[in-house]
């Protein structure tokens, strides 16, 4: 009797909790994405407007806080809430573009390695190992600094340093897909390799790509703010969460809200994307290890 009693919950329960998490992630992400898209309409102030008479005001619930600046103002008297709303545009925009770019590079190389095997595979996988070995943040910093920090360079560098994940997963998947009968069948019907890859192999490798892309988006958001934080991201006056944190760093002792709120925004976004990614993985392909 006691055996069945202890065994039962192991089998049945997790499902519902997972879907709650996914709903939370999706909801939060829609909210954050929506407020980034409509930032110009939602933001109470121009994010770049400096009001030097109202410098370093705390959030409105604290003494000295002002109603019109719910999350306070920074050292130049700029409205924190407006800057966070506008900063989301950069974080999400750069994140999405960088993930797309790195997926393009990684998926292409992974497809080639897995499908053709042999020397192409060996070469591509060694390049993957090289990129795994180099601390990507140092490489990115070096390259961005050499080329000059601009929106485009930041995206290019982020995409070019993070494609490895895609390449590995896609290759592993393609290795098994290419042995399947429908591929042999398509080949027998006279399909050429490129068509075979794009029409038959790629669609079947799509699941892990979607999952990795979601989890990588979370990573890219952290990555972008890290570069910004170090002064190598998208340059001011464009408000970015990383820059706001870097500004806040000088005021950790006197104005806690400067560094707290942008960090909270990053964490919430990353959390939402991660929850969504976990759910996608669990529903689409539970065996996937990423």
């Amino acid at each position: 009797m006691s055996v069945t009693a202890t065994m039962l919950p192991v089998v049945a329960r997790p499902r519902r909790r997972v879907s709650f998490r996914a709903a939370f992630g999706l909801g939060a992400l829609l909210l954050i994405g929506g407020s980034a898209v409509f930032a110009p309409q939602l933001a109470p102030w121009d994010p770049a407007r400096q009001m030097l008479t109202k410098r370093l005001r705390p959030p409105m619930w604290q003494a000295r806080g002002l109603r019109e600046h719910p999350l306070g103002t920074d050292h130049l008297g700029r409205d924190i809430l407006s800057r966070i709303l506008h900063g989301g545009r950069i974080s999400l925009g750069v994140g999405l573009t960088a993930v797309t770019l790195s997926a393009l590079i990684g998926v292409t190389l992974g497809l080639l390695a897995g499908f053709f095997g042999g020397r192409a595979d060996a070469l591509i996988m060694r390049i993957v190992d090289v990129f795994l070995a180099i601390p990507y943040i140092l490489l990115a910093m070096g390259v961005v600094f050499a080329l000059g920090p601009s929106l485009l360079n930041v995206i290019l560098v982020m995409g070019a340093t993070r494609w490895v994940q895609f390449a590995r997963i896609v290759r592993a998947d393609v290795l098994s897909i290419r042995e399947r009968e429908f591929v042999a069948g398509a080949r027998a019907r006279g399909n050429r390799p490129l068509r075979l890859l794009l029409r038959h192999v790629l669609p079947n490798a799509l699941t892990p790509i979607i999952v990795v892309a979601t989890l990588e988006l979370a990573f890219m958001i952290i990555y972008e703010s890290a570069l910004s934080f170090l002064g190598l991201g998208v340059q001011p006056p464009t408000p970015t969460w990383g820059w706001m944190l870097a500004d806040g760093r000088n005021y950790v002792a006197t104005a806690w809200w400067l560094a707290t709120f942008p960090g909270l925004a990053i964490m919430l976004t990353v959390l939402a994307v991660n929850l969504l990614g976990d759910w996608l993985r669990d529903t689409l392909d539970p065996r996937l290890k990423v």
Binding site: A218, A226, L245, A259, M267, V270, N274
Partner: peptide, 13 residues
């Protein structure tokens, strides 16, 4: 979940 979502520079601050 929190640990994976908190960037090191923010946690540090």
């Amino acid at each position: 979940l929190l640990g994976q979502a908190m960037p090191v520079y923010w946690l540090g601050l």
